[in-house]
Amino acid sequence: MTDVNESRDPELPGRLLTVERDALVPLLRARSEEDFALATAACPGWTVRDVLAHCSAALIRVVEGRFEKGVFSPESNDRDIAERAEWTNARVVDELERGMTEAGPVIAEAGGVLDMIALGEWVHAGDVRDAFGEPGAYAGDGLPHALTLLARVTREKGHLPLHADLDDVDEPLRLGVESGTRTPARFIGDAATLVRLYSGRPLAGAEYELAGAEAGELNIFG
């Protein structure tokens, strides 16, 4: 069973962002202007463009070290999106590409406090692929990095313990913290569904087994 009690890999968030950049940016540049106006099921009220504007703004804040009071709150996110309302879609994608390229070293040096941003960016990329109807929205080449980061984030947040037997990953995954006061929950299913559960995304008829916990307890972004 994969354990993440080893020391933090500071380069992991940056690797995840780089892998996702190389997959997502070409996809975005190939889409029509109309596709950026598609609604996202994962983020009610937000279009694909809104999600991308939020992602690019968050990463540029990391790159530039701008963390004023209330940053990443719903109000702050709405302001970031509004500030980019007059931008072309291409400019939003350019900023996103820059952020995904330059944020990694900054996150690495931050000691772990910004690691979850990289995971959130990867999940949002899945939200965009899901809106486009792309297969494997929450999978792809970044999935192994994302799972490793997810496991460590849940441990550092003191999240409930869970043992995941994944259909498409060779080794089981251990998430959260085993304290002796709660029997670890069990998950059986594919890795993308596990990601959806931990990020509070629609399950879209996914087949899985979860015992010892309610789905809502797993959401680390809620």
Results as ranks from 00 to 15, higher is better:
residue 138 Y to F: 15
residue 217 E to K: 09
residue 198 Y to C: 12
residue 200 G to Y: 11
residue 168 D to L: 05
residue 27 L to G: 00
residue 187 F to D: 05
residue 130 D to H: 13
residue 40 T to C: 11
residue 21 R to E: 00
residue 33 E to D: 15
residue 207 E to A: 14
residue 8 R to S: 08
residue 206 A to E: 08
residue 139 A to T: 15
residue 89 N to E: 14
residue 213 A to C: 06
residue 161 P to L: 07
residue 169 V to Y: 01
residue 9 D to K: 10
residue 193 T to E: 06
residue 203 L to C: 03
residue 216 G to Q: 08
residue 72 F to M: 12
residue 9 D to C: 09
residue 128 V to N: 07
residue 15 R to T: 13
residue 109 E to Q: 13
residue 70 G to T: 11
residue 172 P to H: 02
residue 165 D to E: 13
residue 206 A to N: 11
residue 179 S to K: 14
residue 124 H to M: 14
residue 45 G to H: 07
residue 44 P to Q: 10
residue 142 G to K: 08
residue 198 Y to H: 12
residue 24 L to W: 02
residue 91 R to L: 13
residue 184 P to H: 10
residue 42 A to G: 15
residue 58 A to Y: 02
residue 119 L to I: 14
residue 100 M to F: 08
residue 217 E to W: 10
residue 122 W to T: 01
residue 105 P to K: 04
residue 54 H to A: 11
residue 157 K to D: 12
residue 137 A to M: 04
residue 172 P to R: 02
residue 106 V to S: 08
residue 21 R to A: 01
residue 73 S to G: 14
residue 15 R to G: 05
residue 166 L to I: 15
residue 177 V to H: 05
residue 25 V to W: 04
residue 101 T to H: 09
residue 82 A to E: 14
residue 74 P to A: 12
residue 99 G to M: 09
residue 5 N to I: 06
residue 194 L to Y: 10
residue 70 G to L: 11
residue 21 R to C: 00
residue 61 R to A: 11
residue 179 S to D: 15
residue 78 D to R: 15
residue 39 A to I: 03
residue 27 L to P: 01
residue 127 D to P: 07
residue 164 A to D: 01
residue 180 G to D: 08
residue 220 I to F: 01
residue 137 A to W: 07
residue 117 I to Y: 02
residue 63 V to G: 00
residue 24 L to I: 13
residue 6 E to R: 13
residue 118 A to K: 03
residue 136 G to Q: 14
residue 158 G to A: 08
residue 147 L to I: 12
residue 186 R to F: 12
residue 47 T to G: 00
residue 110 A to P: 07
residue 5 N to Q: 13
residue 131 A to C: 07
residue 112 G to A: 09
residue 138 Y to A: 07
residue 221 F to C: 11
residue 103 A to M: 10
residue 195 V to W: 04
residue 41 A to Q: 12
residue 79 R to I: 06
residue 150 L to C: 14
residue 154 T to N: 08
residue 118 A to L: 04
residue 20 E to D: 13
residue 197 L to F: 06
residue 88 T to C: 00
residue 67 F to R: 09
residue 129 R to Y: 03
residue 180 G to P: 06
residue 10 P to E: 10
residue 59 L to S: 04
residue 219 N to L: 02
residue 164 A to H: 07
residue 80 D to Y: 08
residue 4 V to G: 02
residue 62 V to W: 03
residue 149 L to Y: 08
residue 183 T to W: 00
residue 28 L to D: 01
residue 177 V to P: 02
residue 85 A to R: 15
residue 101 T to W: 09
residue 38 L to Y: 00
residue 162 L to N: 05
residue 207 E to F: 03
residue 8 R to D: 09
residue 191 A to Q: 02
residue 13 P to Q: 08
residue 128 V to L: 07
residue 24 L to D: 01
residue 57 A to E: 07
residue 192 A to V: 05
residue 140 G to E: 12
residue 136 G to L: 06
